[in-house]
Design a protein around this nucleic acid. Structure first.
Lengths: 152, 152
DNA sequence: ACAATTTACTTGAACTCTCATATACTTGGG
DNA sequence: CCCAAGTATATGAGAGTTCAAGTAAATTGT
């Protein structure tokens, strides 16, 4: 951080604030829809998705954390809850006995299948339906840049 | 929601996922920086900013909730915490005795002044520094559209 | 071979947020 | 004027997240 603060000019302020409002509302809408219709927060949904796409519907905890955009601690707590619901099982890892493998159960997969249509509809409602195809392309480019800059 | 689900095609998937990763990382970075350097979450920072910009540095709770993008309940809890720290004071509203007015104290204003430079630096680091001027304009347009669509 | 370090994951406490409910005041009919 | 309905905010319980610390196993250096 430099000695003199470079404050945001008016344009930057407006951009920043609209970014904050928009992104917050999108995440809020997603969370609310999933909580209401599927009884899970969006973070849990992302965990189920990541598992469902993995070979054998199973992943080491640390890989799962990376794919589901979660901290290890957060994941650990979340998987504990998902396990209570019978949606995920935890197996000890044979080749590295420190490790755990989270496995999506059939019940978990079913819960995901049931939640998915409503979720996708919400994603369309809050984002794709309101943007032009060009805006979608621009947004992709912008987000990819930000994503790649902010490695963990 | 229609009978048949319109799933996201590959492009939409990629866009959506980069959006999720990018926005989550931005919000995470903001929260972490403010928590580490100023001892407050971003939501509290937004409350202080909203108050600092209001005439007399004071706002009714419901107006404050709107300006700080907070639910009323969330704001109520947050202001209670900010009050404990001496950064905000709550006065009863004279013309409507149901109402409360949150007032930013001098200590609160000082805390905001101290937090602001680091926060702005972080905002630049995670967003403005990595985007071209054209991308910033595009992003503004996109976010304004989403914001205006998703009224509360 | 074994102590020191690192890695993988879990745990507990503190905190924030959400949702449902409660309280206090105001307003609008009859 | 009084009662019903609405509005402004607070509160409490429950749930998720973070941070710091803890456990256990693998790896590294000597």
């Amino acid at each position: 951080m430099s000695d003199v603060t470079r404050w945001l000019d008016d344009d930057e302020q407006r951009t920043w604030r609209s970014f904050l409002v928009a992104t917050q509302r999108v995440h809020e809408a997603l969370d609310r829809q999933l909580q209401r219709d599927a009884g899970m927060p969006h973070a849990y949904y992302m965990i189920l998705v990541a598992l469902s796409e993995a070979p054998g519907r199973a992943l080491r905890m640390s890989e799962l954390a990376a794919k589901a955009q979660s901290s290890q601690s957060r994941l650990s707590h979340a998987v504990a809850r998902l396990e209570e619901r019978g949606w995920v099982r935890r197996d000890r890892c044979p080749e590295d006995r420190r490790g755990n493998v989270a496995v999506l159960t059939d019940a978990g997969f079913a819960a995901l299948e049931e939640a998915a249509p409503g979720h996708v509809a919400e994603v369309r409602r809050v984002l794709f339906d309101v943007l032009t195809p060009q805006q979608v392309r621009d947004l992709h480019e912008i987000c990819a840049t930000v994503r790649d800059t902010l490695e963990r």
